[in-house]
Amino acid sequence: MATLDAAAKKQGKGWQPALLRHEVLLAVILVIALIFLAAQTDKFLTTGNLLNQGRLMAEVGLVALPMTLIIVTGGIDLSVGSILGLCAIVLGYSWKNLGVPLPLAMVMALGVGTLAGFANGWFITRVRVPPLIMTLATLAFYRGLAEGISQARSVRGYPDWFFQLGQGDVWGVPTQLWILAVAVVITAVILARTPFGRGLYAIGHNEVGARFSGIPVDRYKLIIYTFSGAMAGLAGVIFVSRVSTTRSDMGTGLELDVIAAVVLGGTSIFGGTGTMLGTVLGFIMIQLLKNGLALTGVKGDATIVVIGIVLILSILLTNFIQRRRSGNE
C-alpha cells in the first residue's frame, strides 16, 4: 500500500492537484460505510468475511486494472466480459475436446485472451477504429465465438489441483487475492512511476500533443489493449477454477461492473486523470457495499439502486468540491 500512496501523492503533487482529493474522499466514504455496516451486523467486519469478499471480487479487480490504463488514455474496452467468456471456453474446450494437458490449456486461454486484446488494439491503432466501436463489435464477436466453439456445452470435471487457483488459500489468504495484490502493485507502479505511465496520461490529455512530443502513442495503446485482453484471460481462468465449470455466458455484463469501479475510483472517462489507488478503492467499495447491504438484510434489487446512487453522488460530490476549490483559489 505504501507504493500506492506514494504513487497517488506523486500524482497529486504533479499536474493533477485535485486528483488526490477524490481518493481521500472515497476513502473517507468507504471508512464511514464500513463503520456504519459493521454497526449494523457483527457478521460483516470479520477476517473471514473480508477475505471471502476478496475472493469474489478478484475477477472484477484484475480486469479493472488495465481498464484504468485504457480509460486514462481516453479509450474504453467493452469486450472484456466477452474475452473472459471466450478464454473460459478455450480452456475447457481444448482440455476436454482436444485433449490438451490442463496447464497448457491454461496457457492457451491466456494466449487467446492476449490475442483478442491485441486484435482490439491493432484495429484501434492501425485502422483507427474508435475504441468504443471496435470493442462494441468484438463484445458481440468474441461472445459469439465462445458460443460457436462450445456449442453451448459446459465442461466439467476438472482435477482437484486446478481448484487451488480459484477456491484454495495460500497462507490463509485466497490464492487469487495474492495474484490481484501483485497485479495491483505492478500496474500502480507502472502508471505512476514509469515513462510509460506518464505517456498514458499525456495521451489522455492531448493525443496529438503526445504524438508530437515523441511518445509512441500507437505502441502504448496497442500494449494496454493487449494487456487488457491478457488480464481478462487470467480472470477467466480464475473464474473457471472458482466455479468449477465452463460456460459460454461467463462474464456477461462484466464490462459495466468494471467501468463502474474505475469511474467510481475517480478516473475521468475523458482521459488524462486517474490513479490505481482510486480504482482499487472503487472496486473494494462496490464489493463491500453489496456484501454489507446484503448482510444487513437489504434486498438485491434495492442494493443495485443504492450502488447507482452512490456512483452518481460520489462523482457529483468530487465535482462540487473541485469546483469550490478552484473557485476559491
Binding site: L256, I259, A260, V263, S268, I269, F270, K299, G300, D301, A302, T303, I304, V305, I307, G308, I309, L311, I312, I315, L316, N319, F320, R323
Partner: peptide
C-alpha cells in the same frame, strides 16, 4: 450543468431504474 460524465450518470441511472423496477 454539473459537468458529470454522461457515462457515469447513465451507468448510475441504469442501476437505479432496473433495481427500482424489480422492487
Amino acid at each position: 450543468y454539473l459537468r458529470m460524465p454522461s457515462i457515469v450518470v447513465s451507468l448510475g441511472m441504469l442501476s437505479i431504474l432496473k433495481g427500482g423496477l424489480i422492487s
